[in-house]
Design a protein around this nucleic acid. Structure first.
Lengths: 128, 128
DNA sequence: TTCAAAATTAGGAATTATTCCTAATTTCAT
DNA sequence: ATGAAATTAGGAATAATTCCTAATTTTGAA
């Protein structure tokens, strides 16, 4: 894992240029505009590699397909569990303190992501 | 939505008795031990109803199927994005302050869930 | 530069998790 | 007791993602 390929470069470019948390399908649609040859499995495989390398972030929703994010600037996500809307949220969580608490509870894990979940106002007013 | 049914009662009982964040399949397997007639679609439908009612919580993972949790006591989840392990995490997030910050950023949402993500020590040592 | 090993690809099949469909049954309010 | 509304079992359908394979590309050591 890690040889140069034109395909992976295009996929990462698309992610850098689209900060709207696209799905794999949306990334694929944008990628084939630049090179129609690239297959969907290549898109999935490279997305996963980029996630593993920590270059992009995967956001799994309770509704609909996974979404992906290239983080230019550190931020968190506020996610509506009803409609799946993802809002970028700039906040200063005290990661050090959270890590200490995790450690106290014998949970040994580096914090890489914090997600805030709820139901957005729009969905609430529709009272599903 | 909300008529009494024996099936829903069994499903909720299983969730109350199993605080190991079971998947729908695991819930189904436990449910049919109590009543082998109950179908998987009934399990899925009722799980979703219980989530909508806020009685149980759904946890969507980047690896594997969704998991469910009946919260006797308020807590958060620390999730390994590699192996999918979910650790209960007792911590006192300042929800009021987080809500204020969300509001400042025009994100109108009640916080119902906060998830901490990372890679657990075990997975890290295997350095996938 | 050459060339074999390792990595990557396209394309499609397979798998997995979940939702949807339908006719029959159950629950509920009167 | 009765009709409307909700729920059910069972299986089909769908959606998202991974897996498979043979061909191609990339890499780096000689």
């Amino acid at each position: 894992m890690n040889n140069y390929s034109k395909q992976r470069e295009i996929i990462l470019d698309v992610l850098k240029q689209n900060l709207i948390h696209p799905t794999a399908e949306e990334i694929y649609q944008l990628v084939i505009k630049k090179n129609p040859q690239i297959s969907k499995s290549t898109v999935y495989r490279n997305i996963n590699i980029l996630v593993d390398l920590g270059i992009i972030q995967k956001i799994s929703l309770s509704t609909g397909p996974d979404r992906y994010d290239y983080l230019y600037k550190k931020h968190y996500h506020a996610i509506c569990d009803k409609c799946g809307e993802i809002y970028d949220f700039y906040y200063d969580f005290d990661i050090g303190q959270i890590s200490n608490e995790l450690h106290k509870e014998e949970i040994k894990m580096d914090v890489s992501k914090i997600e805030i979940h709820g139901i957005c106002e729009n969905c609430k007013s529709k009272n599903y």
